[in-house]
Design a protein around this nucleic acid. Sequence first.
RNA 1: UGGGCUAUCGCCAAAUGGUAAGGCACUGGAUUCUGAUUCCAGCAGUUCAAGGUUCGAAUCCUUGUAGCCCAGCCA
Length: 570
Amino acid sequence: MDEKLEALSENVENAEKEAVSKNFIEQIIDRDIAEGRCRQVVTRFPPEPNGYLHIGHAKSILLNCGLAKKYGGKFNLRFDDTNPTKEKTEFVESIIEDVKWIGGDFEDRLFFASNYFGEMYEGALRLIRKGKAYVCDLSADEIREYRGTLTEPGKNSPYRERSVEENLDLFERMKNGEFPDGSKVLRAKIDMASPNINMRDPVIYRVARLTHHNTGDQWCIYPMYDYAHPIEDAIEGVTHSICTLEFEDHRPLYDWVVRELEYENPPKQIEFAKQYLTNVVTGKRYIKKLVEQGVVDGWDDPRLVTISALRRRGFTPESIRMFMELCGVSKANSSADYAMLEYCIREDLKLKRPRIMAVLDPVKLVITNYPEGKVEYLTAQNNPENKEMGTRLIPFSRELYIEREDFMIDPPKKYFRLYPGNEVRLMNAYFVKCTDYVTDEQGNVTEIRCTYDPETKSDSGFSGRKVKGTIHWVSALHAVQVTARLYENLIDEEKGVYNEEDGSMNLNPNSVTVCDRCCVEPAVQGAKPYASFQFLRNGFFCVDYKDTTDERLVFNRIASLKSSYKPEAK
RNA sequence: UGGGCUAUCGCCAAAUGGUAAGGCACUGGAUUCUGAUUCCAGCAGUUCAAGGUUCGAAUCCUUGUAGCCCAGCCA
């Protein structure tokens, strides 16, 4: 009794601790709420539509969305599309799809920074009138020279002291297209001697005649990120603008813009460390190279960690959310083991997916004392750990396929599977004892012969003797032929992702193994793209949407099952 | 060599001056019709280092060390 009470109070304590253990961003928000700086939390995910989202973006989406949910606030999806050179509508579509899939619920709040160009232009005018911005005629090269270096201060631009009137006139003419691309910029007038290079009169508007995916040819001047972003946040009433660590140095400029433009309830920028995964390629340039070289079959190749690739491989949004939850949020650069992600997907699929038998590398097994031509339908649980998933019937007959690995002529110690003279259980069926085997001229096993014991039928209550091994099988006559691909890391884990000498990638030449003779029990028939299963003893597999045809199912292995079996020397 | 940031187990990560949570990985062992799952046990004599303050330091101070980011009219 005392023990129980103790355990109970311990549980309560733990629950409390868990509730108290908040990440550093939640602690900041708590303080902002307690001190009255914030009424309702508003966050946003602000991608530039210039590529596909990957697992790192998933962290940001889930963090922002999760925070809004936790505090009863709002979460926006906003495209940060202020630089038309790199942006495409194609990407806005794929990003929306990925954000929704991963569970980033922005409801009806889909925004575009480009819709705020007018307000940004007005803001620039205000800055000019306040004497806080000026038009500069220096070339890009000259601006760089004037900027100074990390250790030396910069010099003032000769155009820095232009009058408000002249600046107003020039800026309007920039907008009207009177000056060629790159000939003039608008700069914030801050401090050319600042130790923070971002504060050395940063460029806030450039002239560029580009067709924008959203605004077309309406504008020929475009605002820069540092100027635009705080305005976007302020317009949307974002309270906590969460970004990655490399923007820490930009925060003073973010605050400067918000202050000079006199926004009430100014948004606050908070930086966190990116989510890295060990030995995984996330760089756009590198993925592009892999696609171009044909190493992978697209941005959604199952070995990649773009969101579309994870989806194709068979990861679920739940598993990715669990992974992010497990990783936590901090300001320390770190890199999570892929094993953690695998743990999450196994955990998620364990009780949710049917467990069926599939033989990846088949070898024939003949039951010599089983009548020829007889077919028996055996009952199996679809998921023994989740009875609600019901049962199915599996055909059993004289000729079966079993896994080549599950038979050895001359096995080492502690090999529990089939070998001459040994008896094992055929899962969901009978005990079977190896009596003989046939090999070809090269010595490869082509057929295994066994006898079965009808008394040992599964669920018959037989307890006469025990057997060490249980193996899976498929009736030869009824087998569905499919293709299964087994993946290893794309990267050679010994060497790490990048080759330091030439910047190339250290690829693992065996990152994919194709089993094209894979035999599965009839239950797979009719499986649709993205459907997934546990193939007993082999792992979780998902129907590939790209390569599956009406004639043939193609499966990708999502993750293997853990195994403590180590083949040992005799 | 200017500025900003970070450092707690193999990998993540808590701890907010009160005596190092948790998860992944790993290692035993039990149960098992999946060598899976589940269960149980183990896994930081000390928090980058060295000094100091304190009854008490991962937390405060001092001095170092290491790593990451910044010199786009990219985001």
